[in-house]
Design a binder for these strands. Structure first.
Lengths: 177, 177
DNA sequence: TTGCGCTTTTAACCCGGGTTAATTCCAGCC
DNA sequence: GGCTGGAATTAACCCGGGTTAAAAGCGCAA
C-alpha cells in the first residue's frame, strides 16, 4: 500500500476559517495535518504572553506536534489558520504503526522525516549563526511572497524580534540598495 | 536483518585524537558516525571566521551532515574531536538504500529520525524563544556535566554568545542563587 | 619557585534591538 | 470627503550582549 492510499483511507478532511485553531499549546493532539490550501502559522506562547512564530505552513506542507504525536506529551506549540484552510488530518500513531508493517509507507516516512530534519537544521543554523538583519534578508530571498501573505508583525515574530525592530531593519535594508 | 547487524557488516571503526577533524565544512562526507566513546563538537564557521557550535556529541550519539548525505551537497558544518574518540563510520546512502528494502532497518531509521527531529525542534525552540541567560540555565539543568567537559569558550559559542558575555551571565546567575 | 601560556574575569565603550508611546499611514465605511 | 481602527513608522530611552584590551587566575613544566 502506498502512503497516498493510506492517507485516502485514514485521513479526515478538515476545513477551518481564518482565526480558528487546529490545536493549542498544551493540547494532546496526535495528528499529522497535510495542508491542501490556505495558510497557517505554528507559534509558541510564553508564560508572559510573548508570541514567537515557529513557522508558516503553506499548501503542500505537513504539520503536527512531534512531541505530542511520538513522545505522548502535550503539544509544545499552537497551530492557527491565517486564511481559510483545508487540510487532511491523519492520526500519527496510525502512520507510525503502518510504517512498521509496510515497506512502502516506511520509505515515504523516511523521506518525509529526512526533508523535515533538513528544514529544522536550516532554521537552527539561521537562528544560531545569523543576525536578525541577515535572517530578514534571507527570508526575503527564499520566500519573496511572504510580505504579501502575512503582516509585518508576524514576520518579526518569525525572525525572533519585535515589529518595531523589524521596521528599523527594513529601513536599513532599503537604504542599502 | 537488524540495524545493528547492518552496522557491524558495513561500518568501519575509526579512531581520532583530540583536535583531529572527521570532516570539514565544504567537504562531501556522506557518512553517519556512531560515537562509541570520546567527545566531539559540530560547528559552523562564518566567512569572517566566527565559530558557532551546533552541538556537542557524546558516546551513543550519532552525527553526520544530512544535507551532504541525503541531498548530495557539501557538509554545512565541521566535526572535530575534543577528546580522543572512537566511532563507527557508516555510509549513509547504504543505510538509506537498506531501509528501502528492509522493514526492520526502515523502522530503526524512522525511530532515529524522529528522535533527531525532536532534538532539533527543541533547539529551535530554545534559540527562538529563550534569552542567552535562559539558555544557559537550561543547559546547566539538562547537562550539568558540561562544565567539566568543555571550556567556557565552547559553552558560549554553543549558546550563540561570546565568552565575555557568558562570563557576565554566570555572574548574574551565581548571585541569583 | 618562577615563569609561561591559556582560560576567565573585569572594565569601558559601542550598538542592535527591546520598550513605550506618539505619530503617520491606509483601508474600509459612513 | 471625513471617520475610524489596525498596521507601520518614528522617537527617546533602556539594556543585554559585542568588542577590545587589560588584569587576574590557574595549571604545568623547567
Amino acid at each position: 500500500m502506498k502512503f497516498q492510499e493510506f492517507v485516502s483511507a485514514h485521513g479526515v478532511p478538515i476545513s477551518r476559517a481564518a482565526g480558528e485553531h487546529l490545536f493549542r499549546q498544551g493540547d494532546a493532539d496526535q495528528s499529522l495535518y497535510i495542508v491542501k490550501n490556505g495558510l497557517l502559522k505554528a507559534y509558541y506562547l510564553s508564560s508572559e504572553g510573548k508570541e514567537n512564530i515557529k513557522s508558516f505552513i503553506m499548501p503542500g506542507d505537513n504539520i503536527g506536534s512531534l512531541v505530542a504525536a511520538y513522545a505522548n506529551l502535550k503539544c509544545s506549540f499552537s497551530l492557527i489558520c491565517l486564511r481559510d484552510s483545508e487540510l487532511i488530518k491523519v492520526d500519527f500513531k496510525a502512520i507510525y504503526e503502518a510504517s512498521q508493517h509496510n515497506l512502502e509507507i516506511a520509505s515515504t516516512v523516511v523521506d518525509f522525516l529526512l526533508a523535515f530534519a533538513m528544514k529544522k537544521e536550516r532554521r537552527e543554523f539561521e537562528l544560531l549563526c545569523l543576525s536578525a538583519e541577515d535572517r530578514y534578508r534571507l527570508l526575503l530571498e527564499n520566500m519573496p511572497s511572504i510580505t504579501d501573505l502575512v503582516t509585518q508583525n508576524e514576520i518579526a515574530l518569525y525572525l525572533g524580534i519585535t515589529p518595531v525592530g523589524l521596521s528599523r531593519i527594513k529601513k536599513r535594508v532599503q537604504s542599502a540598495i
